[in-house]
Design a protein around this nucleic acid. Structure first.
Lengths: 198, 198
DNA sequence: ATTACTATTAGGACCTAGTCATAAAACGGA
DNA sequence: TCCGTTTTATGACTAGGTCCTAATAGTAAT
């Protein structure tokens, strides 16, 4: 006797979770049982067939891709946006943002939220960060909601705009930064020559 | 005559790109041709069948999930590390790092590489960025390899360390930053009291 | 109109990775 | 030994194709 039914089914479940692109045939070889047994197991465990599993993973990916396109530009959710004036975005700190050791958000995520908001607030085809001074006032922890507020300070003629961003958790400022942005409408000459420079 | 072969094939290609989960049958209805014509078209355009398309999308998703996990500690690959002295990391700019519009790397990825390197070089349990001044000297494009070099400038007694990072592509500096870091060994009192402060 | 050629459609055999239903066989425990 | 569970086998059928052959349409040039 290799494994009891219940044991096999538990292992099966885990195996399919870890490796969803596996056929019944391959599973039957691994467990040294017939293909029909595997199918009975899937039936009892309500695990769909390979093609449905693949489809499910692919749909997720597709939905995210579709979702990601409009989001692409900004990290966090924009809750208010007045072009060339101000913008507000919200970022909820999840496990993917923190150091596993101490649950403190990694600085570059706060920077990314602020920086992408500074890019988004600019009403031009192209906006790139040229310089920036930032400070992290206190650590942000897992589960906190960071609200970033961007303000456009000055828009000079020479393709430069200054944007300040203050990020806070419950009224307490956790991050602040000044972003010196380069901006350009694509129609102008500056852009493509700039891009080809490498 | 509805569409010429070449026109239909162009549209077909676009349609499948936009909506890869479409069967030949559905396509044949849309173009009002037989299923065989659609299959000939796919053959000529080297477009794989529905199931292969789904599998491809799903694999991508899967690979990214797997890839996203180990990223945790440092953005980029560390190629040299001398604790409390210097460190070097390498980041190859992929499609996930760039603005789709112009293929220029988004600033926060360069920041993330530099910042996480500054954190990594510090020989203490806890290292957090307190302040930073950074500048983006020229846009970095898709496919370029960014080499970030971090140097520890000064290590004062009061938990502060200054680290500079210069990132370059083929000897040309693309990013530079100064990071004012807060560091602490976990044994000391400062850390946990600090963390519980919210 | 006839020929020549491309484009389209049709058909059948085969494939994978299954479903669903039925039945037979093997195994474990009282 | 008999009973109930578990496993295996078998056959019919499905979607969404591949691959190959062959017939038919449509268009253009002679």
């Amino acid at each position: 006797m290799k494994l009891k039914k219940s044991e096999r089914q538990e292992n099966l479940k885990k195996m399919i979770e870890e490796e969803p692109f596996i056929t019944d045939e391959e599973l039957s070889k691994r467990f040294k049982v017939s293909i029909q047994t595997i199918r009975l197991d899937r039936l009892e465990l309500a695990i769909p067939e390979l093609r449905e599993r693949i489809k499910y993973v692919a749909k997720q990916q597709w939905d995210e891709t579709v979702k990601a396109l409009p989001i692409d530009e900004v990290i966090g959710d924009i809750v208010d946006l007045q072009l060339d004036l101000s913008a507000i975005s919200l970022l909820e700190i999840g496990t993917e943002h923190v150091f596993s050791r101490n649950q403190i958000a990694r600085g570059h995520h706060l920077f990314a939220q602020a920086n992408s908001l500074a890019v988004a607030v600019i009403n031009d085809q192209l906006a790139l960060t040229a310089n920036s001074e930032i400070s992290f006032n206190r650590p942000v922890k897992l589960g906190e909601r960071v609200i970033a507020k961007a303000k456009v300070i000055s828009t000079e003629e020479n393709h430069r705009t200054v944007v300040t961003v203050e990020s806070s958790v419950q009224q307490e400022i956790v991050f602040s930064g000044t972003f010196y942005m380069y901006r350009s409408t694509d129609e102008e000459r500056g852009d493509s020559s700039n891009e080809n420079r490498n």
